[in-house]
C-alpha cells in the first residue's frame, strides 16, 4: 500500500495522459445546425469509433479528456473551431486527424492536428473573423449600413439569453467590418438575387458578441433589414495582431519558436 485512496473514489483508476493533441475542425453545410453539445456528443462517439486511445478523468463517471475552445453558435458554419484531447498512448497527429475525420459525419470535418507543446489554446485566441452572406441585400445597401454602424461610438442591441433579455454593445468589440464591392469577392448569387457580403473581425468579450448581434446592430443603427436569413461562417480564430490580423493558434505548437514571438 502506497497510501490511502481518496474517499469515494473507485478502485483501479484511469491511465494518465501522455500526449495532448490540438485539432482544428470545420462545421459545414447542414451540419452548421449542430449545437456545441451536439458536436461534443458526436465527437466523443467518433473517438470510440476511430479507436483513439483517449484518456479519461478519474471518478465514478469517467469522462473523456476533451476541452473545447469557444464554439461557434448553432446555425453558424465554421472553418476554424478548436479543441484539445488528452491521450493515454501516443499517436501520430496526422493519422489521428484522418481517423477522426472518417469517424465523423460528413460536414463535421477535422482539418488539422498538432501535438500541444504547452500554453493553452484559450490564451492564443482573442478574436474571430467571420464572413456573413446576406441574400437579398445589395452590396450598396450593406456598405451604407456598415458606414453608419462604424461611425457610431456605441450600438446597444438586445439579445434573449437564458437569463432573460440583456443589452450589449455591438460596436465596441468590432475590430473590422467591411462590405466589399461585388468586384472584390465572388458573391453567391442565386438566380439574380443580390447577395451582399460582410467581412467581420470581432474581439472576444464577455458576454460574447456574435455575428447575429452585429446584424441586430446594423438593423438598429442603420435600418438594414434582411429579407432572408443570413449565412455566417467563422473563417478564423486567433490572437489579434496590431495590424488587425489573426495568428493561427496552432502555429506555436507546430513551431515552438513562435511561442511568445512577435506576431508577423
Amino acid at each position: 500500500m502506497t497510501g490511502r485512496r481518496p474517499k469515494n473514489q473507485p478502485e483501479g483508476g484511469q491511465a494518465p495522459v501522455v500526449q495532448r493533441i490540438r485539432l482544428r475542425y470545420a462545421k459545414r453545410g447542414p451540419m452548421r445546425f449542430t449545437s456545441h453539445r451536439d458536436f461534443a456528443r458526436a465527437f466523443e462517439r467518433a473517438i470510440l469509433r476511430a479507436g483513439v486511445p483517449i484518456a479519461y478523468s478519474q471518478g465514478f463517471t469517467p469522462h473523456p479528456k476533451v476541452s473545447y475552445a469557444s464554439a461557434a453558435p448553432t446555425g453558424v458554419a465554421s472553418e476554424a473551431e478548436y479543441l484539445e484531447i488528452g491521450l493515454r498512448d501516443r499517436v501520430d497527429p496526422g493519422e489521428l486527424a484522418r481517423a477522426l475525420d472518417a469517424a465523423l459525419s460528413p460536414g463535421l470535418d477535422v482539418l488539422d492536428a498538432v501535438e500541444a507543446v504547452g500554453g493553452s489554446l484559450a490564451d492564443r485566441i482573442d478574436a474571430s473573423a467571420w464572413r456573413v452572406e446576406l441574400p437579398g441585400v445589395t452590396a450598396k445597401a450593406a456598405r451604407q449600413a456598415v458606414d453608419v454602424f462604424l461611425a457610431a461610438a456605441e450600438v446597444p442591441v438586445e439579445r434573449l439569453t437564458k437569463q432573460g433579455r440583456r443589452t450589449l454593445d455591438a460596436r465596441g468589440p468590432v475590430v473590422r467590418l467591411d462590405a466589399p464591392q461585388p468586384a472584390d469577392v465572388t458573391p453567391s448569387e442565386v438566380g439574380g438575387v443580390p447577395c451582399a457580403i460582410l467581412d467581420l473581425v470581432v474581439r472576444q468579450v464577455t458576454p460574447s458578441v456574435r455575428p447575429d448581434d452585429i446584424l441586430s446592430g446594423l438593423l438598429v443603427a442603420a435600418d438594414l433589414e434582411l429579407p432572408v436569413p443570413p449565412r455566417a461562417t467563422r473563417i478564423a480564430q486567433g490572437a489579434l495582431t496590431a495590424q488587425g490580423e489573426l495568428v493561427d493558434p496552432l502555429a506555436a505548437d507546430r513551431d515552438p519558436a513562435v511561442i511568445g514571438a512577435p506576431l508577423s
Partner: peptide
Amino acid sequence: VNAGLKVP
C-alpha cells in the same frame, strides 16, 4: 485485433 487508430 482492432486496437489502435482506425485510419482510413
